[in-house]
Design a protein around this nucleic acid. Sequence first.
RNA 1: GCGCCCGUAGCUCAGUCGGAUAGAGCACCAGAUUCCUAAUCUGGGGGUCGCAGGUUCGAAUCCUGCCGGGCGCGCCA
Length: 579
Amino acid sequence: MKSVVAQLLESALAKLPELADLIADIAIESTVERTRDSSHGDFASNIAMRLAKPARKSPRDVAASIVKQLSDSDQVDKVEVAGPGFINFHLSAAAFQQELRTILDQGICYGRQPARERPRILLEFVSANPTGPLHVGHGRLAAFGATVGNLLEAAGYTVEREYYVNDAGRQMDILGVSVWLRWLESQGTTIPFPEAGYRGDYVRDIAGDIDTGDATVISAEELTDGLPEGDMEALIEALIARAIETLGPDGFDRIRQQSLESIRADIEDDLAEFGVTFDRWYSEQSLTTEGRIDAALAALEKSGNVYERDGAIWFRATDFGDEKDRVVIRANGKKTYFASDIAYHFDKRQRGFDLLIDILGADHHGYVTRVGGGLAAMGYAADDLIVDLVQFVALYRDGEKVAMTTRGGKFITLRQLRNEVGNDAARFFYVSRSNDQHLDFDLDIAKSESNDNPVYYIQYAHARIASVFRQLEERSLEWNDTSGCDNLSLLVEPQEKKLLTTLSRYPEVIELSANNRAPQHLVHYLRDLANDFHTYYNAHVFIVDDDKLRDARLVLVTATRIVIANGLAILGVSAPETM
RNA sequence: GCGCCCGUAGCUCAGUCGGAUAGAGCACCAGAUUCCUAAUCUGGGGGUCGCAGGUUCGAAUCCUGCCGGGCGCGCCA
């Protein structure tokens, strides 16, 4: 609908070259917005105010000369200049009726934009280390990322979703040794569990399932003989060394890989149950085995952006806005995690993705300049990488903050949260706040089946509409949608007009939410839409004796159901027929 | 110390590219059902948009400084 107004303005300006020249760099559509107050019409443009200064005329004069050039349209009832120089458009009833027919015609496609070739987007999210189950913080990354992916697709983009599996490095050794120690325990060899190991119960479960091959059980004395005391980091290092010497490198690797795969598969199941799926699980190990880190480092070398100092190889990150240079190869010859990161992003770009979007926890903010700098150093634009940082989640129960510590394995898992409040409420609450806002997740509200739960409020509107049609059937009446579409002019009640207006905003909301990667706009919109529907429901009966009015009202109500269902689908929330 | 994010009603938060009288929900108060699901609806009170400057036709929004909260600053992963 917005484009109707923008086009009218555009053709009017075409007749005013002296004005049009002044705003060559402004998209006319960007001057058009919904009005907040219906007495100002449906849409307003501030274009005259923006033109006033360069044109050296008063905003109202500019507005008047534009309005004079506007051609008549059956979509517009009235145009007026108001306030400091707004041009207000009052759309016709016919325009809204047309939109209603569009909603019915397009159904589940309503609000989606046609596919566009570019940019191809690679969306990376969650990417939690595979050292244990996902917790509630990862849940927010999952829900946010999945919803952003859905929004971008609705906006016409091609999106691939990827999970980066940190399956290399020391943490995998620690996982392996943790599982080994738990396995030994199950065989009767028990020592105090190391502080630096992974202590969650899931480690015992893995140890119980694992195939250890011909591994021999050693005694506690053999296990602890000569181990360092006091320093927990040194202790875990020594235990890893002991595992390798006892099991052999292959034997230890076997435990390590099984443990990793067990956890990774569990994460995949957990997310799938949450409605979050990925096109690819990208292994960090594969960066090394396929030589991608070396390739990236060679590209950096070639562009002259690395140098040697103190026996290490450094990336000139300061040349790209970072506060200090970063090591890529340590003096001991090992590559850093940062080297993997830039290699991974270099590879994403080389696979043909134009735009890389990373959804990361807020503690990763230092990473943005560095990786963007790495891309720039390798010949790509730093702007090709967008990082959305998602702030932390605090759980509240009975008005109290729920204490969570990662240490000691005492944290609430995503699975526990989903079991407690349900997938729908979890998906909804996670995206109801801006990603750069800390999230206070109130378990009691998410669980409550009552009026203070916004998820149910929206779902209830959908179920009520389904119920209206069940009633229709019970009364042996039929809905003639053709008749309904022919009689939309009967929809004259204020609640009907309000609902029509809100429905017609949906495509704009999708576009806005997608462009800003801001699902909370859609959440708020759906709440508004449900509110308009409930108000209508309470004010008027839909199944009336008058066939034409009934058919028309059922068109409006059906359109409402379509838009609610479409919006909830993007959020990953179900749209129930009954509640 | 440096960097990033946040500060809007009692509470939790929206507020698009700077736009007209700053909005929701919860909580609080008062009402609505012979009728399609009351998990609903209607009305009401409640604001120094952290503070101080600046930019301009116009600032919650942009700029500077300050105050308060969170997070991050490794040849860890």
